[in-house]
Design a protein around this nucleic acid. Structure first.
Lengths: 245, 245
DNA sequence: GAGTGGTCTAGACCACTCA
DNA sequence: GAGTGGTCTAGACCACTCA
């Protein structure tokens, strides 16, 4: 394994991050083949002119991503199985764009409404207080793929219909300086009502994939409550899970 | 914040782990309230007689779990939103047991079969080679909840029907010394066929929640390929996601 | 017994936040 | 300017794995 690794001490990028990026690239490009040993941490540190903790920090970040496996007494190996993309809090918009599908959005509703009991509970607001309600139809290849209904607390974000048609809700939140932290999700299935079927060009009673999500920012505010319906012929939730040790 | 923290240096449990467990317990019990500041790392280290890296390691593990948020220049805070259980690779059996539902299992099929093209591809074996096939019906409160069809490579595990009826597949794997590492999952929905409907006491065409999963151990072997059907009135996938920074 | 990662120390300098 | 976490060093001793 004659891997070319080098760090640039004049760069503002942290040394451990430079190293982890190079290792990740080498794994992605196949220079580091699955199962190959990385060389021990002390030797790696010496070769790069880094301290061992810095090398460990780089390796740890790739272990956390599932790309490397450490075994005491044995060494650090590139994982065999193809790890693609770990599960992350993604928006349907990003998912579709990443799949090269050029998503389109039709905004059906963008207004203030009094919060229902369910919405009020999810957002932590009094029932009946004003909340934003956004209903969107997401299309791919000109076909409806999902119906997205979201509620947001007031004052968090300016929601312009033209922006909502041009990009995804999470991108708008990030652009507004909101740091997303976590989300609680529930994925289920049920039969389409007549109205839902019409929106999604399905027939009444057809199976639909459902997702409810409450999203929190890093200050603990609830920033969004979503209730989504997907056409199962057009969309499935795909993700990679890591077993935490 | 007069939190009682103490480490036992005679214990074989790592110091950082003792600390992170105490912090986690304090968060869980409400001693450390959401939003409260932890006190800076150097002061914490001095108070506990630990070095700062050790304290950081403890804090980092709780940041990774989503319980703490660090902000440079500000401090480390307990997260506001209620983080329950992060998404992990769980078995339906464990899920049900954790929910206090005392799951029951009926093994419908437990045999060796030649691998179909799909199964062979998932397990990385030649088509037509012998694989274990297990079909199970999972019940809760005496009602069928899911139909589970799994394929496993030969020689990995002894699959006794009585064990499969007493516990979950993942537990059997772990007990056999298999270290699970990651899984690729796909969650979707579709209409029940007549045969599926009968097994699950649904009607033909009823919406079902589907999950396909390929699971890898830490040596990169594929240890399981599962194709599961859930009754959406009885089960949904619930989980918490963390946004990776 | 040789080699590995796991844990731990006691510092240092820095970038960032906020009053 | 005071206080915070982010990064980094140069070590140390240990438990575990494997031949």
């Amino acid at each position: 394994m004659q891997l070319e690794l080098r760090v640039d001490r004049s760069s503002p990028v942290p040394l451990y991050f430079q190293l982890s990026q190079q290792l990740e690239a080498a794994i992605e490009h196949g220079t580091l083949t699955p199962g190959s040993l990385l060389g021990n941490e002390i030797e790696l540190a010496a070769r790069l002119g880094l301290s061992r903790p810095t090398v460990r920090q780089a390796i740890q970040s790739l272990v956390d991503k599932g790309l490397l496996v450490r075994r005491r007494g044995v060494g650090t190996q590139v994982v065999h199985s193809q790890v693609k993309r770990p599960l992350e809090l993604s928006s349907l918009y990003d998912d579709l764009e990443a799949a090269g599908q050029r998503p389109a959005t039709q905004v059906l509703v963008n207004t203030l409404v009094p919060a229902s009991a369910e919405v009020a509970a999810a957002l932590g607001l009094p029932e009946g207080s004003d909340v934003h309600r956004v209903e969107r139809l997401r299309l791919a290849h000109g076909e409806p793929m999902a119906y997205l209904c979201n509620h947001l607390p007031p004052g968090l974000l300016d929601l312009h219909t033209d922006q909502l048609e041009a990009t995804g809700l999470y991108r708008l939140m990030r652009a507004a300086g909101i740091t997303l932290h976590s989300a609680r999700q529930s994925i289920g299935a049920r039969a389409a009502t007549a109205a839902e079927a019409e929106r999604l060009t399905e027939s009444e009673g057809a199976p639909l994939l459902t997702m409810q999500r409450t999203t929190f920012d890093d200050t603990g505010r609830t920033v969004e409550f979503g209730d989504h319906l997907y056409r199962p012929s057009r969309y499935a939730f795909e993700f990679q899970l890591l077993v935490r040790p």
